[in-house]
Design a binder for these strands. Sequence first.
DNA 1: CAGTGTTACGGTGGACGTAACAATG
DNA 2: CATTGTTACGTCCACCGTAACACTG
Lengths: 94, 94
Amino acid sequence: MEFMQLEMFVAAVEEGSVQRAARRVRRTPPAVSIALRKLEGEIGVSLFDRSDRSKRVLTDAGRTMYTHATRLLGERHTTLAALSEMKQRSEVES
Amino acid sequence: MEFMQLEMFVAAVEEGSVQRAARRVRRTPPAVSIALRKLEGEIGVSLFDRSDRSKRVLTDAGRTMYTHATRLLGERHTTLAALSEMKQRSEVES
DNA sequence: CAGTGTTACGGTGGACGTAACAATG
DNA sequence: CATTGTTACGTCCACCGTAACACTG
């Protein structure tokens, strides 16, 4: 489970489309499609309900993953922001 | 900033040694040494105070990173555990 | 047949290990 | 000189993009 996989998953959920998700994360649709499959394989449970093609709906596990994924990505952002600020301060030597 | 980098960093801090950190994350010392340098390069600030070789001490940024890194790794673990449990339930079809 | 998702496949950048080197006690 | 960290370097593979295919409205 890597950050890029989580970004791709969250993008796919929020955009409701592999194509738009791919644009958001600066990848091509095949890259996203394959990465999502790999993620599902790693955790051993499907995240999307692919029974019906027209419906792009999450499974229970998918909803759980979405909650955790957004939190993880948010905290990474917080972490980078905190360090970025420390960098600023150190550069000014204040 | 990737999970493996965070694992390596936390291991290096807690083990107080690149060698033991490498063992913990199942890598060789060069892999860890280089990965830590790369992490520092990405965030633009040094995490260890390398002024004195004998002392393996964290900078302010290093301590901040350690706090955030342990939280991120902990939440990844929580996420995987939650999904693993959902997998169990689905397998039993309860 | 237009639009979207998936499979096939070749190329490539990056992470790793081995080996050699540097530094410290 | 034993131990630990770092640099050098070659290998390998995981990810990506292009192209082709499958499915749906």
